[in-house]
């Protein structure tokens, strides 16, 4: 069986959709972060698959590597912020973050 680009694109689109759905519906900040990781990884899959099956060169792979490194840095700082919030509020639900509004 020949695996075409369609399979990869469907996989990444499903991951993107799941990530967006999770971002809007989850209440726990860590779960939201996991949803965002799904979105970022969907884009990475796209890059790698496009590079492997459609394009020449290694531009897409290199972009994937950089993007993984950058999303790791972002996750690190996001978790640091969440730990800081946990210390103050003793939980990390987004509904509790309501001092600033309107």
């Amino acid at each position: 069986m020949n695996i075409t680009i369609d399979y990869f694109l469907i996989l990444s689109a499903v991951m993107l959709g799941a990530g967006m759905y999770g971002f809007f519906t989850r209440r726990n900040t860590l779960a939201i972060l996991i949803s965002i990781e799904l979105i970022l990884n969907a884009a990475d899959i796209n890059f790698a698959a496009f590079n492997r099956l459609c394009q020449t060169g290694i531009e897409g792979y290199v972009f994937t590597l950089f993007s993984i490194a950058i999303s790791a840095a972002e996750t690190a700082i996001a978790i640091a912020v969440m730990i800081n919030i946990y210390r103050m509020l003793k939980n990390n639900y987004v509904d509790e973050l309501d001092t600033l509004k309107w």
Partner: peptide, 13 residues
């Protein structure tokens, strides 16, 4: 802290 959480989550998204 709250402002930072809102900023980083929307920025990442």
């Amino acid at each position: 802290a709250e402002a930072a959480a809102k900023y980083i989550l929307t920025a990442l998204f």
